[in-house]
Design a protein around this nucleic acid. Structure first.
Lengths: 337, 337
DNA sequence: GACGAGATTCGAATCGGTTCGACTACGTAG
DNA sequence: CTACGTAGTCGAACCGATTCGAATCTCGTC
């Protein structure tokens, strides 16, 4: 079942088999055919480890995901799926590594054991020591999300600041004067999670620019928290006529809260946000939102990584995506008290 | 950065370094310490490909997931996460392979390139050619779910037939005489998807046993379909006083339908089911359901696979899990018209 | 004082591929 | 007719680890 066996059965040397397969040197049509026949018969495929050892590359990408204990969000899942698919399309395999703790054996194995040709990092923090680690190891990598100082790194991200700002402008255009931001959890904000911070910043800036009154309230990433968040909002800030959200996981709870308190959307309250299309369309009424293109992002990340692997010293590229806001049914003119 | 370099700097031979690391032969304390110092200084870790080549094992498991294009359900995601975590715990890496379509280059690479020591297969069909393929390749594997003829294979599964039957009995005990089964999608049933078939079978048997009137209606795996399903149920089968479901993804839609038609749970209608705890507790009122232990299942699958790798010829074991039904707030006595 | 056991170390072979240099045969240009 | 380029093939070296056999040295024992 190894290349020597193929060579023996085809009556040629091992190198000839190798050349017949790779095409790096010419092999006579007759010989090539004989070799192919033997291969088809036995169902031979070159041993990946041996090839990796000699070639110095593994044809494998590493994907660093948040640890399983934390529930992955729908969006994160979308990334994983799209990265795996894009990699498969380029005939590459994907090695998963849960990480997020500090000194991950799995993460270390991946990089210093040379198990992968490059790495895609998810869930980047504003300050992230894994990025530093990868830079010193000189292993090509791309991050989904970016650090506070992303110069010199490759990354793909959603421009949360811009998207939240746009949704604020959209709401302001509709006459809303008092808007609430349903942000991600307080823990994430405290841990320096980029999207939460940038949403905050974009919100604050747009609110000031339009002379609005804006309040920002974090909310844990789950339905129950979303429901509670909404109750508190209605109780403490009855003047708010519009909500903008980046917290997908809280949406079902928000929905429940709305129904329980019998608030009419968008007549009494408008809602805009940033969410995967899947979530936006699942909301009732359908959510006016910037649709996060998770599938494309994974594909872009793989594309950037392949570039980087091919030319490790090239100028690092990045992509900051700001998909347009899809107008659906959850936003309308502000109620005129 | 290879073992030769370590040996040179420590002034010993390469084999001594290897023995110092593996402990398979004794090495003097002094030498061991010197070698360790060099290793710590350079941050050396053995090259995974070289080790795999020589040892004949890769310390990697393959996880075959449904293709990314199909959205993974929350439960499937739970498996992936738990498998990765359990593998990491055993110092193993996990290679992902999307499969299920026909053009599975990725799947073939995995098995005939000897990239993994064993494979975990998700989303098994009653007749599944991948199982056959793995058997002929003599590669250890464990399936999550089982085929129609699971003799001789290792698997972990949820006993849908039993769980659905139990929920029917529970509802019958509460006086319900007319029960509907909210099954998975018609496509899955047609494609020979085990859980859907077994739920059907368990339902039918229990209904007959208790002399009930039971109707089984498939439903696509998404919220919108769940909502529509509920409307049709109320319209066409107003006599139904209880629903049992195995379709997690339809739950949010079911919830919306219930609220829209203003049906009181459990006063007017009882609902029981099989669902991850996360979903059951997210339902309003909280769902009486058998909690599918996704995290444990992944761990069990890895455990079985490791056994199988260690002793490929041992008698294949399997686990059929039937977690107890957690009584929550969605079931109550049948309404007495 | 020789001998066997065990500790410690080294050199060489091996895993299964890829690739370089060399060799043969055959045309073709000069 | 000679020189040379090229297609086709082979043998050997190499990638970076593990592991076997053998060599050396140190003791304790008879």
């Amino acid at each position: 079942m190894n290349i020597g066996e193929i060579a023996r059965r085809a009556g040629v040397s091992r190198s000839t088999v190798s050349y017949a397969l790779s095409g790096r040197r010419s092999v006579s049509a007759e010989t090539k055919q004989r070799i192919q026949a033997v291969i088809d018969e036995i169902g031979y495929r070159p041993n990946a480890a041996a090839r990796a050892l000699k070639e110095g590359r593994t044809r494998t990408l590493g994907l660093v995901i948040p640890p399983a204990s934390l529930r992955l969000t729908d969006m994160q899942l979308g990334f994983v799926a799209s990265v795996v698919e894009a990699a498969a399309h380029a005939d590459l395999d994907v090695l998963l590594s849960p990480s997020g703790g500090d000194h991950d054996r799995s993460f270390e194995r991946l990089i210093s054991g040379r198990r992968v040709d490059g790495i895609i990092l998810m869930e980047i923090r504003l300050e992230d020591e894994r990025v530093t680690r990868l830079q010193q190891e000189a292993l090509p990598f791309v991050t989904i999300g970016h650090t506070a100082h992303p110069q010199g790194t490759c990354w793909v991200d959603v421009d949360y600041a811009e998207l939240v700002a746009r949704s604020v402008h959209h709401l302001a255009d509709l006459g809303h004067r008092s808007i609430a931001l349903l942000n991600r959890s307080a823990e994430l904000v405290a841990a320096g999670y980029g999207p939460a911070h940038r949403a905050q910043a974009g919100f604050a800036e747009a609110v000031v620019l339009r002379g609005l009154s804006g309040i920002e309230l974090p909310c844990a990433d789950d339905p129950a928290a979303g429901e509670e968040w909404f109750e508190q909002l209605r109780e403490r800030h009855p003047e708010v006529t519009a909500v903008t959200t980046i917290n997908e996981a809280a949406l079902p709870g928000l929905q429940r809260g709305i129904e329980r308190l019998n608030v009419a959307i968008p007549r009494e309250l408008s809602i805009a946000g940033v969410a995967a299309r899947h979530w936006a369309e699942g909301f009732r009424p359908q959510l006016t939102a910037a649709d996060v293109p998770t599938l494309e992002m994974g594909a872009h990340a793989v594309e950037l990584l392949l570039e980087r692997i091919a030319a490790p010293t090239s100028a690092p590229r990045h992509l900051l995506l700001a998909p347009p806001i899809s107008l659906r049914d959850s936003t309308g003119p502000a109620r005129t008290n």
